[in-house]
Amino acid sequence: MTGTPLKTFFAPDSRSTVAAEAEARPAPAITVRGLGVRFGSKLALSGVDMDFPTGRITALIGPSGCGKTTLLRSLNRLHDTTPGARVLGSVHLGDLDVYAPEINPTEIRARIGMVFQRPNPFPTLSIYDNVVSGLRLNGIRKKAILNDAAESALQSAALWDSVSHKLKTSAMRLSGGEQQRLCIARALAVEPDVLLMDEPTSALDPIATSRIETLLRALVKQVTIIIVTHNMQQAARVSDYCAFLMVEEDRVGHLVEEGLTLQIFSKPADPRTEEYVTGRIG
């Protein structure tokens, strides 16, 4: 987000404008070239070339085992923390080479936030301490800054009104949906450029899921979002762009096609995509 010129900034909820945007795709927030991931001797993903447009929601879809979560986790170098995992190819955040030797993975992870499948607030910390934990981890101690950041992050996650009076209570007292929004607030508090979400609603009930989906449409005004989802309706509902990945008998996980969500769901270029979005495979 270093002054990238954004030609059009559309109202995110009016999805019809997205179709008109086809030629004016925003500059990429993250660029991926020749990306592959291997775990030990086993290749899980290979040859992914893709741009993730700034200020948009990009959904990664595909059947189980196609490598969409693996792709997501390679964007913020989370694979570095698992022994035996190796990332091939390149990832750029803006102009920054994410896998350059002089780059700290911790700095990348502070700039690219992440929300996980299951709500994972720190069970021993209060709501407030959960929200500001990322700031504290990054060396910020000043009370005033923490307070401001906590309020603004909880506002952004649509949680402020319901928890502002009980910030000191344990995060485990919240419902599952609230816990997941707390995790979103915790990620937002660090002011990331990009927010990665790994099936963030898979552990939630339909009402909590729909609240998170609404939230995502509001959030994309301030942060680029990349979301992995199992649920095609969800991808169709929330995303602007969509990427379809697949694993086949003779081929490890790879990108089949990507593009505007409307186009992927209405007239996909590849027959395999069509089969998947119409529910014939996966």
Binding site: M114, F116, F122, G134, L137, C183, A187, V190
Partner: peptide
């Protein structure tokens, strides 16, 4: 659980 660990890594924490 790994998810608790990754919560810290995902926020930019060191090991």
């Amino acid at each position: 659980p790994a998810t608790s660990r990754e919560a810290v890594f995902g926020l930019g924490g060191t090991r």
